[in-house]
Structures are given as C-alpha cells and as structure tokens.
Write a protein that binds this DNA or RNA. Structure first.
Length: 599
RNA sequence: GCGCCCGUAGCUCAAUUGGAUAGAGCACCGGACUUCUAAUCCGGAUACUGCAGGUUCGAGUCCUGCCGGGCGUACCA
C-alpha cells in the first residue's frame, strides 16, 4: 500500500511531500505515515483551506490536545515548498497550497503520464478472479442482467488499473434441469428454421412454453428431469443437442457483449465443473464435514456463521448435485488455477447461498488443515434489485430492446437540438449520427447503473434509465466533446502549434479560482480509483467524474480559452483542458463509456 | 419467526468510512447563445437524516430496541 505513494509520480509529488512534512512537523514516526495520509481531507469550505488535517487521532499518541497539535504543527510547517499559508482552526490544521507551485507540478504529471496517470500497483500483479454476467442459458437475458455485467466489467477494469491481474470469468448457467425443459419442448415443437433465425430467444421461448405446460400437467416436470438425467449420463443425441444450444447461446451473448464493450477470459460454466463435483462431494464427506440428512448430503454452517441458516446442500435426496456443490468445486478449481488474491462473485440476492458456500469451504479448510484458508478471499459482490421486471409475469424488459430504445432516443434528442439551435452543433453524417446515438444511448444506460451505490435497489423506468442531462453518462460525454471542440478550433486557428505542445505552457498564468478548483479536482483522480477498487464500488468513479465535469463546465462558462488577451494564457488553459480531458477519458473508459470527440 | 439490504429535500441519489455550516441532479421559478458544442452555465426555494435511547471531544455514519419498504429463508439455478 505504501509502495504506490512512494513510487514517484502520481498524486504523488505534492501529496508525498506534504505527508513527509506533516510527519516531521507533528513529530510522528514513519510508521504513522498511513494515519496522516488517510487523515487528509478537503475542508467543507474552500475559504478554510485547500487541504486539512483533523488532529484528533494524534492526541492519544502525542499526549496533548488536538488544538495544540494543530497550532504547534502549523508553526513548524512553513518549509514545505508547496505550502503557502497555514490556518489552524481549533483541532483542524488547514493548509493553503502555493498555487503557482502546485499547478505546474500537477498538470505536468498528468500530461506526461497521460494514459497511465493514476495507475497503481496496489495489486502487485496478484490475480483476482471476477465472476460476472453469468446468464442462464434458456432464461431471458433481460435488463436486470445488465447490472451484474456492468458492475463486474467496471470492477475488472478498475482492479486492473490498480495493478491486479484480472481473470474475467463468465460462469454461465449451462447445466441443470432447465435444459431438460428446453430439450423437452424442442423435441415436441422444435423448428430448425426458427432456431437458426432467433437462436437463444427461441430457446427461451421453448423454456417458457414447457414451464407453462407444467402448470397444467405436472408430469412434464418429471419428463424434463429425466431428460436432464440422461444428458448427465452422457446420452449422445442429447449431448449433441446440448452442445448446439450452448454454442448458439454463447454466440448470441458475444454479440451483446461486443455491443456493451464487455470482455471475458472464460465462458466455462456449470457444465464444465460438473465433472468434478462428485469428487468434491466425497472429499467433503471424507473430511467429516458433510453429513447425511433427510436423504440429502449437507454441510451444517450455522455454527461457522453463528446464526440460524439452512445447511449448505451438496446433494439432493434424488442423488443429483446442487449448484452449491458446483460452486464449491468451482471455487476449489479457481484456487488451484490462480491462487487468487480475491475471488469475486458479482451476483445479487444470493447472500445466503454464498455465505453457505464460503462457510462450507471454511469448514473443509479446517477439517483438512489447509496451509492457507483462502475461503476468506471469496467475496460476494452483491447489488440492489432492479424492480419492475419480473420474468414470471412476463413483464421482463429485454436488454436488446433497451439498447435499441436508448439509441433511438439519443438520436431524437440530437436531431431536436439541431433544429432548435441551428448552427450550434457540428454537422454529422448519417453514419456519424448512428454511431454517436448508439454510444450516447449506451452511456446513459451504463451510467445509470452506477449512478447510485450498488446496494441500492433500482426501479426500472424508461424515462429514468434513458436520461441524457444532469447526472448522467451523456453529460460526461458532452463535457469531453466540448473540450475536443476547443482543440479543433485551436488547431484550425492561430494555435495549431500551441495545442500540441501544451506541456511547454506557462502554467503559472492560471490564476483564477475556477482553474485552481479544477486542478484540485483532477489531482483527486488516483484517490477516487483507489477508493473505488477497495470498496468494489464503481459508483465512486461515477461520482468523481460528475463532480469534475461540473467544475469544468462551470469554468467553461466563466472563462474563454481561445482569443484572450495573451496567447500564452490561451496556451496554459489549453494545457489545463488537456489534463481535464485526459482524466475524463480515463475515468469514462473505466466505466465502459466511450469518450466522443464530437456529439 | 429468522437472516441480509435499504430508509437523507416533492422525486432520484451524495456525504472523503466517526470530522467543521448535510451536498448534487431532476422537477419548479428567473436569467445567459452574432465569438471555444445551450445534452450547457448562473441565480432562487426546499431537510427534526424513519422514531427512541446509547457510545465520545464529535454520529446521517457505530451499538441496542422499535417502525416502514425490498429480497431471501435445505432438494430451482
């Protein structure tokens, strides 16, 4: 953790200098570095200072009052090159930074490091396995699945940025009784032509149809179960059918993923692991962890979890294995393959299930006396429920549908703006309009998912999900495109030279409050990424970017960039814009939102 | 019954993990485009942070008990 602050660069020059000076001024040993580092906050009012250190935590160490600590440290702190003035207020040590010194240093860091600004080595190249999206073949890929897919993809990118080697796993639901239903309906109604045309959508229909029939004829349930059993036993014809269904489904999913900009390293799902399940179950039994109960094989976990909870069932009374057993086997395989620093399941509403699985593994670890109990590294990244989309009532909104609607609305908005405000927007070819509409619509959707912290429930509502102004993805895109527009103008005008050599600008010329506030904001980016990764919370980045974009638009409205009194001032402002644009682009990229030069 | 999550402005959400005067966006009202993209900006009103206790220098945040909502509760995955 300390490593990344020390590795030069980063937020880094200013911050590490400051922390060093503070340690000395407070008379604290190097060990307390983290306490100081993490204690730094932004004062509620910029009038108070640029950075503040509440001194309460040091009172017990230094054996004097926070008030005295702040006052005392203030008198010893002047020698830091980045400090302008100190303003101790009671227990708070408020610091005003020397803007003329800080601004060039911060902006140069960003411009030099560009694409890698904020990249950190928190992970030290350790592996994180992250399991997300995991659609259930034969069940519809509806809007609700977007959350797991999106949150998982975001976290994967964020953790990668923090220096982990991320293994993206799409543990698809390609095994289980639902296949019995699909096969049953296929044998009864299957139509080759429709299958080729509509692929997975058709399989879903078959599944729903078989399910409906079960309501009036319970025998179908038995039929489906026995079909699945035959599949499990390796029936050749059924296996061939299953392989085909699976391949078709993955093909369809991959199209959707490509559209969303989401990637995976593996699509191996439940079917792949099911071969190892029996072995794992007997391992649980041999270790004395799993017991027989009501003809089933279960692991009692209420003792580990210290609460009343159903046991983790590994085998049902009819002899077939459960998905909990598959998850146990899968986790074991993941550890053997990756020796992960974390094994994450981005999955909603299954807290009990994962608690059971992790606890069962913990019991196995104890019984078998593992050298390292990695069950502690398994995490369920849960998230809120998307309301208003129950599959059973048939009111599910399919993801594809939402994507189309998003694109169409984005296009309509753009066209309306053009007519109400002619000349204000760049002309677009129809290809550009298509591409941009797709991208803006997607940005609205993806951003909506992370616009609140992940545990919050969301109501599905077209007008909420597809908003384009205010706290939205398109707002970020718009801000980025505005900056790109300025650079286009600069290159076309008297600034062609200046716009590609902004790093040689004289940043001391940036003296307005808005510029200072922007510099303070861009500097917080690495911290936001770090927090976001630690909390497994993409929303953290969304909130940060929103704030940055708001500060920029405020600046943009208050000051001109080009054609100001002195050309050198324009050049310095272009440098600031480049830095802001760079950060916006990096952050949007982490959220899977494309940065557009024109919109 | 038990477990997990959520409760903050009319609505949707923040609040640097226990820090100073609880902030944004939508909606509403009033302003700003012959010069860098008005999907924008500026100004205005709106809060007993569900309720009651407790912990301490300090609580929206932590602990306890209620109230309201969501989800789950061994043979569906």
């Amino acid at each position: 953790m300390r490593l990344f602050y020390m590795q030069g660069g980063g937020f880094l020059k200013v911050r590490s200098s400051l922390v060093q000076s503070l340690l000395a001024a407070l008379g604290l040993p190097e060990d307390e570095r983290d306490l100081v580092e993490r204690g730094l906050i932004q004062p509620p009012d910029p009038e108070m200072g640029d950075i503040a250190l509440p001194c309460f935590p040091f009172a017990s160490i230094l054996k004097t009052s926070p008030h005295n600590i702040a006052k005392d440290a203030a008198s010893k702190l002047m020698q830091d090159p980045f400090i302008e003035r100190l303003n101790p207020q009671g227990p708070y040590l408020n610091i005003f930074l020397k803007r003329s010194k800080v601004i060039p240093v911060v902006l140069m860091e960003i411009l030099e490091q560009s694409d890698s600004y904020g990249r950190q080595n928190l992970g030290k190249d350790e592996v994180i396995v992250i399991d997300y999206s995991h659609p259930n073949i034969a069940k519809p890929f509806h809007f609700g699945h977007l959350r797991s897919t999106n949150i998982g993809a975001d976290l994967a990118r964020i953790l990668d940025y923090l220096g982990y080697r991320v293994f993206r796993k799409n543990y698809i639901g390609d095994w289980g009784t639902q296949f019995g239903f699909v096969i049953y309906a296929w044998q009864k109604y299957g139509d080759e032509k429709i299958l080729e045309e509509r692929a997975v959508d058709y399989l879903v229909e078959l599944y729903i149809r078989a399910n409906k029939e079960t309501e009036s004829d319970p025998k179908i349930h038995e039929e489906a179960k026995s079909l699945f059993k035959r599949l499990e036993e390796g029936d050749e014809k059924l296996t061939a059918l299953w392989k085909r269904f699976r391949a078709l489904s993955i093909e369809t999913y991959e199209k959707t993923y490509a559209r969303l900009g989401v990637e995976f390293d593996s699509f191996e799902g439940e079917a792949a692991i099911s071969r190892k399940v029996d072995e794992v179950i007997s391992r649980f039994q041999k270790a004395g962890v799993a017991i027989e109960s009501e003809n089933a094989i279960v692991v009692e976990v209420s003792d580990v979890l210290n609460r009343e909870i159903a046991p983790c069932m590994l085998r049902k009374s009819d002899g077939s294995s459960t998905y909990a057993a598959r998850d146990c086997a899968e986790a074991i395989a993941r550890w053997e393959d990756h020796k992960f620093a974390a094994n994450m399941y981005v999955c909603s509403r299954q807290e009990d299930h994962f608690a059971q699985v992790f606890a069962a593994l913990k019991k196995l670890a104890r019984a078998e006396n593992w050298e390292y109990d990695w069950s502690d590294r398994c995490e369920n990244i849960s998230f809120g429920y998307v309301r208003g989309m129950s599959t059973r009532k048939g009111s599910a909104v399919w993801l594809g549908e939402v994507l189309e609607e998003a694109r169409d609305r984005a296009r309509a908005v753009r066209l309306a703006k053009e007519t109400s405000n002619p000349g204000a927007f760049p002309r677009l070819t129809s290809e550009q309009l298509d591409r941009i509409s797709e991208s803006v619509g997607l940005a609205a959707l993806l951003y909506n998912d992370v616009s609140a912290s992940r545990m919050r429930d969301l109501d599905f509502d077209w007008d909420t999900v597809l908003r384009f102004d205010g706290n939205t993805g398109p707002y970020l895109q718009y801000t980025y495109a505005r900056i790109a527009g300025v650079f286009r103008k600069a290159e076309g005008g008297d600034y062609s030279e200046d716009s590609d050599s902004v790093e040689r600008a004289d940043f001391k010329l940036l003296t307005t409050e808005e510029e200072w506030s922007l510099v303070l904001a861009v500097r917080e980016f690495p911290k936001a990424v770090l927090q976001s990764g630690r909390k497994r919370e993409p929303h953290e980045i969304a909130g940060y970017l929103q704030n940055l974009a708001m500060k920029f638009n405020n600046y943009y409205g208050a000051h001109r960039i080009l054609n100001v009194e002195h050309k050198s001032l324009s050049k310095a402002r272009l440098g600031l814009l480049k830095a802001v644009q760079n950060i916006l682009g990096l952050g949007m990229n982490l959220l899977g939102i494309s940065a557009l030069d024109v919109m």
